[in-house]
Design a protein around this nucleic acid. Sequence first.
DNA 1: AGCCCTTGCGCG
DNA 2: AAAGCGCGCAAGGGCT
Length: 600
Amino acid sequence: MALAAETAAVGAGDRNHPGWIQALTDDGMPLGPPEHAEDLPAAVAEREREVGPRWVWASGEDDYSLLVRAGVRVARCHDAALVEVILLGREGRHEAPHSLAAASARLHGLPAPPDSPRAAPEEQSALFGLDAAADAPDAAHRLRMLVEVYADQVQRIAAQEREAPGLRLLAAAESAGALVAAEIAADGLPWRVDVHDAVLSEMLGPRPFGDARPAKLADLAVRVGEAFGHAPGRGFNPDSPGQVLKALRYAGFQVSSTRAWHLRGLNHPGVELLLEYKELSRLHTAHGWTWQDNWIRNGRYYPEYVVGGVVTGRWATRNSGALQIPRIMRRAVVADQGWKLVVADAGQLEPRVLAAVSGDTGLARAAGEGDLYAALAAEAFDGDRAAAKLGLLGAMYGQTSGGIGPLLAVLRTRFPAAMGFVEEAARAGESGRVVRSRLGRACPAPSRRWRAAVTGMGGEEERAEEGGVGEPGFDDAEADGEGDAAADFGRQSAQAARARGRFTRNFVIQATAAEWALVWLALLRRELAALAAANPGLPAPRLVFFVHDEVVVHTPQEVAAEVAEAVTTAADQARLFVFGPTPVRFPLVTAVVDCYADAK
DNA sequence: AGCCCTTGCGCG
DNA sequence: AAAGCGCGCAAGGGCT
């Protein structure tokens, strides 16, 4: 492992964790020679107690997890890999590799090695052992790379002080996020297998043997088939979109897909059964007994977050779908005996962010209220809250259909600054420019493929190039029928441009919302540490879950009220850190509960 | 058998 | 007429 202590250290080996530590100035200048530590976690713990430095390491995902597993936690860090991603993004190189080795290679004008994909969890420990062993002789070398890369990153951040004064905060918050993610991965979310079982059995019937369908699903599958005229046992599979589509068309429905929202309202006994089947089947396949077998250990669920895994800076997850857990399964999340869950949700976060970043006084006035949409409705929509919400969401997502036009027109006249803000972001995206979040995270530049599609420049091989995987604008590529090739091109090019416009329009909001949430999380973590320090007789409260704009803290009940207060304090501070003085409020819905499902 | 793509749906 | 943003995961289905 490699660590630097504003400070840095390098370590290797999974056994007794030897490693290196080097003290640095804020700028990354060495204050002394690298020091070898036989037991790196112990050395880190000691220096954390005595100095409390900002630790620098190559990647919290690897390095800090190791420390946490050894029982050591720190207050602050600089995560070189995550900061590299942010800086590369600003330099228009989102796709460049971001590992320590890659960053170091770039510094020396050498070709950067590609990032290695994360191994599946089963292989991970084995590989890690191997890597660590192989790395051991390199530990001192990795420290040198780390110190260089850190100093370079500090300079790159400072060099952008004028254009992006928020970058330093962003780097700190992103790094703190990595601390939180590693700690959640180690602590786990309390998860009651018996409650999970009860929910599943209630909805699906008892757990089946092997990979058979649970009773209710099997029964529904047969009845859906029968309702569409299939003899029982003649192999109608409701999971097959092809078969379902055929059955629906045979029943006289001109449908283009079998999506649930598309089917709802179709008057046919089979459709109703099919919708019920879909819902239960989803529960079974995505979060049923197999999921439980794979991901719940010792009454804990261990989410594997990917900090900054989304281009907007939101977190993603790996393997177990932690951000998609069905709300009904929150019933299985129950605090330990003598503990509580403090659940806090930042309501209406994105429209509030729009109010804050656009400086629209009218919208900011509404965002100073507890229910932004109601205030907006009172001010501009004759009290029609649903219309106000629909219009504002449509404005932030770039919606044009569904009779939303008049709502947008009202918003444009009443809240010109807010609407101008998102529309400018959309125009930037359509014309191939880059937009940035409040703190300075940049959206990806358009790929060559996009440029080719929009401008007509570039040849076939560019269109085939990898580039735009996941890039907006290429959803339905097929040109319908013969027609005029030039007209087709014009249509497709306009479509790709508008798709990117919707992306950038939303990016400025979503990315800034992610920043507020990240700073909130970082400050909450700090508050919790202070709370733990003030209550040495109690186990520490732990952040155990985070979903974009919502946190869950598992805490000894004695300090649950203080934790709830800390959550609010952190949110207020986050507002100030990210937006400075603003009338916009970011109210939380906070609940102290035994069971996650009981929050709101 | 395994890879890759599409479809569909869960979450915010 | 019309295309509202961002994700991850499982299953089907075509392919090698």
